[in-house]
Design a protein around this nucleic acid. Structure first.
Length: 247
DNA sequence: CGCATGGCCCTTA
DNA sequence: TTAAGGGCCATGC
């Protein structure tokens, strides 16, 4: 019964499901996969993906994995395809058992940031109900065990600058460029404080960085200084980027 | 603009 | 128990 329930919940590619459900002990499995960051080691347990790491070779990876997660991990090349698909953004299960509730909340929100989209650290903090914990959000993302799968590279500073990244800021920039995110434009948009945007026929107002949910056409953008002005036009907060409801 | 500073919250040693 | 320090932020020059 347990296995049936698990099977029902898994939304990962079929090959991955098979592998994950094949209970062959308490040892995690890994494969070397190609990614936008180059070759990376990706590991999984029965519950989902546990780690995405760079390492010099297999021995170094196995040692680093044991050091960080306290678990043994063995190579399984037949997982390469499924794990690669997960890296590419396909829906896959993730095993975050090593994360505390705060970290998990941060990662859960970060995971829902769509490709080609960015969000500020401060936005994540508000989303998890801890608007003051901005800095701690950065720390939590720094320890993201599954970068790319949980796209922490899409979290940037509130002024639109890129911010730090576990694999180095330059790689963060190129990942975003690969998703057609124009950081220059992002920066320009976010330079205006307390300004909210809406499209011509939209019923809601957004943070200016809400450009994936709402591809504003330049000629039809309406800008509001403060949300009171947006409310005066009968607009409601965007259900995706959740701008404030009241001042 | 760019830079420095104090503040903030959470984790770790 | 405490203190230090981080993928930050808002201010104030």
């Amino acid at each position: 019964l347990n296995d049936l329930e698990t099977l029902r919940e898994v939304r990962a590619p079929a090959g991955f499901v098979d592998a994950v459900l094949r209970r062959c002990g308490l040892v995690d499995r890994y494969a070397l996969c190609e990614s936008p960051l180059g070759s990376v080691y990706v590991a999984a347990s029965d519950d989902g993906i546990t780690a995405v790491m760079q390492a010099a070779d297999d021995a170094a990876f196995v040692a680093a994995y044991r050091e960080r997660f306290g678990r043994k991990v063995e190579r399984r090349d037949d997982l390469r395809g499924p794990l690669s698909r997960a890296l590419a953004g396909e829906d896959a299960r993730v095993d975050l058992r090593g994360c505390n509730p705060f970290q998990r909340a941060v990662l859960d929100v970060t995971r829902r940031i769509p490709e080609g989209t960015i969000r500020p650290y401060a936005w994540i903090a508000r989303e998890i109900g801890k608007p003051g914990a901005v800095r701690a959000v950065g720390t939590a993302l720094a320890k993201n065990p599954v970068p790319l799968v949980i796209p922490c590279h899409r979290v940037v500073r509130s002024d639109g600058s890129c911010g730090e990244y576990a694999f180095g800021a330059p790689l963060k920039v190129s990942l975003l460029q690969g998703e057609n995110v124009d950081l220059g434009e992002v920066r320009a948009r976010m330079s205006e404080r307390d300004v909210f945007w809406s499209g011509e026929d939209d019923e809601s107002y957004c943070y200016p960085f809400c450009f994936a949910a709402r591809p504003f056409r330049p000629e039809s953008i309406r800008k509001f200084h403060g949300i009171a002005e947006a409310h005066a036009h009968g607009l409601t907060p965007c259900p995706t980027c959740h701008p404030p409801l009241a001042a």
